[in-house]
Design a protein around this nucleic acid. Sequence first.
DNA 1: TTTTTATTTGAACAACCATTCAAAAATGGT
DNA 2: ACCATTTTTGAATGGTTGTTCAAATAAAAA
Lengths: 193, 193
Amino acid sequence: MARHKEFDKIAILEKAIGVFWSKGFEATTIQDLVNATRINRGSIYDTFGNKARLFNLALTHYQKATPTQKLLNNAKTANPRKEIEDYFHRILYLHGEQGEKRGCLITNSIAELAYLDKKLAAHFKIHINNSENALYTLVKRGQETGDINPWRNPRSLARSLLASAEGLILISKVDPGNETLLDIANAALSLLD
Amino acid sequence: MARHKEFDKIAILEKAIGVFWSKGFEATTIQDLVNATRINRGSIYDTFGNKARLFNLALTHYQKATPTQKLLNNAKTANPRKEIEDYFHRILYLHGEQGEKRGCLITNSIAELAYLDKKLAAHFKIHINNSENALYTLVKRGQETGDINPWRNPRSLARSLLASAEGLILISKVDPGNETLLDIANAALSLLD
DNA sequence: TTTTTATTTGAACAACCATTCAAAAATGGT
DNA sequence: ACCATTTTTGAATGGTTGTTCAAATAAAAA
């Protein structure tokens, strides 16, 4: 055995996420990543392969801490209506007035790369499907307990909730007032009544 | 006076739009634009300035042919409910099954560039505000004629319609089934009842 | 036809891109 | 202390980037 790595892979990955999140994949240069991570170019390649692979790892790691991930974790157990409300409130907190103005890394990447990169597109499709299914599970359960309007088609409702969330995140990038984002979230939630 | 230009500026601009639309701003190279337009690099610079200026012109020209532009033109005169329904139907036609899978140039550009380029961000903000205001005008008019649910706040409703449209366009990029996009549009339109 | 002015052309530019690699440095096991 | 193994380092790679420019070309005006 021999020498250990001097840095924490995950800490580096999280710094890389920050760069990709702000600048997008194409606009991010290896030099940007060197500056942000403060490790040598060679170490980046040695540890993460190349820019595309690092981006993939960044995406996957980023995903673990999103409102959507919490939705996935809680879909089968949590209070359905409250969980959907919390989902929107987390999004509002993240992208609202004092939150991020760089949108969501996944949403940004879908817009930038889904048409060009078939492998990434497949990854994004799975992510969107998972989100839809988590919302579907919650809606269905909420309709059974009577907390959610039982007359709406649960699949359609799940899809439109997700679209509202994505639209909200996109619109948050032009920095509208907080009331705008609140209106969007509340209108989406009003579909539960 | 002397020589005329051999090419049609607008025809060239539309070819450039196609490239930016498919690849985004950063991933598009001048060489891509040379290949697509079949005019010389020098002519591109002579006619359009530089990449950033050409992109601006492309955005502005693209905007003139969007569903949103039609909304802006008709907001004060058209049948309010029908115009909003047509807005979503045009989006469905453009981004649905046999439509574009590259999303909307403006939506894509917001995701890619709004956080990085303050000038573009201001441009996008105006565009979003105009869209919201057109929808607001239509909702208000529809509420007066009784075609649209008068109990909903017209400003909130306009905002959520726009968010649904943006979400629909984003989700269309992962190529879901047509029913998914239809569900989103119908749920948004159900807010008018 | 000649002059004048604009467009077209292709080569050239420096800067920057992602990536590679051999040498140097460092550490755990013997 | 020494060896084996890995990480770290910094320079170098070849290709591509956006942009410029002087010369060649073409056409309207004289």
